[in-house]
């Protein structure tokens, strides 16, 4: 692993995406993910200094909808969560 990757902190990143890794996963990942990053570093060889990034594959702009209300049968959505209380969706406490 090169020095540039020495700051790769699996635990911190996992907590950023709300994952808690088991000790085995942590061990496995720190090896595997560093290897994958090395593979990403192949891009260092690409000559892209004057190139614009492409965020969207097609160049399309200004896609809008009109400001019209069209209600959705919300009861369908309330059948999805496991816990609903008086139409409120339950979430764990702060």
């Amino acid at each position: 692993m090169s020095i540039r990757e020495s700051r790769f902190d699996v635990k911190r990143l996992a907590s950023l995406v709300k994952l808690r890794l088991s000790p085995e996963e942590e061990k496995l990942f720190s090896v595997q993910l560093s290897r994958i990053l090395e593979f990403f570093n192949r891009l260092d060889k690409a000559q892209v200094d004057d190139v614009e990034p492409t965020f969207h594959p097609l160049e399309i702009y200004n896609v809008f909808r009109e400001d019209i209300v069209s209600p959705y049968p919300s009861d369908k959505l309330l059948s999805l969560p496991s816990r609903v209380k008086e139409r409120y969706i339950w979430a764990p406490r702060m």
């Binding site: 990143l13 709300k18 994952l19 890794l21 088991s22 990942f29 764990p92």
Partner: peptide
């Protein structure tokens, strides 16, 4: 709670990719 759900609900490959994606 989020961490527990996500750590149990996602498999290895998904975890790898979202961690690297965040990175």
């Amino acid at each position: 709670y989020y961490e527990d759900v996500r750590s149990r609900g996602f498999g290895l490959e998904v975890k790898r990719r979202i961690i690297l994606g965040a990175y």
